[in-house]
């Protein structure tokens, strides 16, 4: 099986949210409440247990190639966010039940029949993606349309995207395609275009890459995401020190004080 991926190109996104709707409908994802956010046209605000695609509306002053608006009117970069399906996934490492697995397509999948809702994956994801659904109790996130991929079909969001902003396919090919697209955009004068894929961190690259313009931080994409398992050696060393101190401390305290004077009042 080849490893598949997403390449989400914000320069092609028109903010129609067809991907959000397609994802909800295909995967039967429940309503997660509605709130006028006042933050541009984004009322989804964040990925979560019941939002597996989320179109970000990054507003800014007009720039070359970013919408053809009149000077003085702010314009948008749209970017459809999704679970990154990390090469080294914090959620998968943290899961104590083995519910979260790596599929034959290289994606990260939560088996809903195994998850017992312990909530540990929630604090292990460096991208703040996975969450526990309050009324259900289990953790949910993008499945990378595991069911559709198994049947040889592309994920629902990619199929519904009208502009080709969401590309689906072989991960390596998409990576190359993303790099080519960046070159193309640079040649067209859009110097701030880049491909977001943190390959040089402990996350070890992501299977859902983003082509963005400007600073990744404006998209809440962390410049240096790290998988929390890198902290384990330090954490267990500290635990070892704590345990050793407990052993030595209690043995020493009792040895020093002898056996006497312990009569119950």
């Amino acid at each position: 099986m080849t490893t598949t991926g997403f390449l989400t190109d914000s320069t092609l996104c028109i903010g129609c949210k067809a991907c959000e709707v397609a994802c909800k409908e295909w995967n039967d994802v429940p309503d997660d409440g509605f709130l006028w956010s006042g933050l541009s046209y984004d009322n989804t605000l964040t990925l979560g247990a019941s939002s597996w695609r989320h179109v970000k509306f990054v507003e800014h002053q007009p720039r070359t190639g970013c919408g053809g608006n009149a000077p003085g009117h702010s314009t948008w970069q749209f970017s459809s966010d999704v679970c990154k399906h990390c090469g080294n996934a914090g959620c998968l490492e943290a899961c104590p039940t083995g519910s979260i697995v790596r599929t034959e397509f290289g994606s990260v999948y939560v088996q809903p029949d195994v998850c017992n809702g312990c909530g540990y994956c929630v604090v292990a994801c460096p991208f703040g993606v996975i969450d526990r659904r309050p009324d259900d109790g289990r953790a949910f996130k993008c499945t990378f349309c595991y069911d559709r991929q198994k049947a040889g079909m592309e994920p629902a969001c990619a199929k519904a995207c009208p502009t080709g902003s969401i590309l689906f396919g072989d991960l390596d090919k998409l990576q190359r395609r993303g790099e080519e697209r960046v070159e193309q955009l640079h040649a067209a004068g859009m110097d701030d275009a880049s491909l977001y894929n943190p390959t040089d961190t402990s996350v070890g690259g992501i299977h859902a890459m983003f082509l963005i313009r400007g600073d990744s931080r404006a998209y809440n994409l962390p410049p240096k995401p790290e998988v929390p398992t890198t902290l384990l050696p330090r954490a267990w060393t500290a635990a070892g020190i704590g345990a050793a101190a407990m052993v030595i401390g209690s043995l020493a305290a009792f040895a020093m004080c002898g056996s006497g004077r312990s009569a119950k009042r």
Binding site: L39, S40, D42, L45, T46, G48, K56, V58, E59, H60, G119, V122, V123, C125, P126, F127, G128, V129, I130, D131, R132, G214, D215, R217, A218, Y219, N220, P222
Partner: peptide, 18 residues
């Protein structure tokens, strides 16, 4: 505003413990 200084409208990036 979104931007390098406040992220995406200052919205949380991580999920709080449940």
């Amino acid at each position: 505003e979104p931007g390098a200084e406040h992220g995406y409208y200052g919205l949380p990036l991580l999920k709080p413990p449940v």
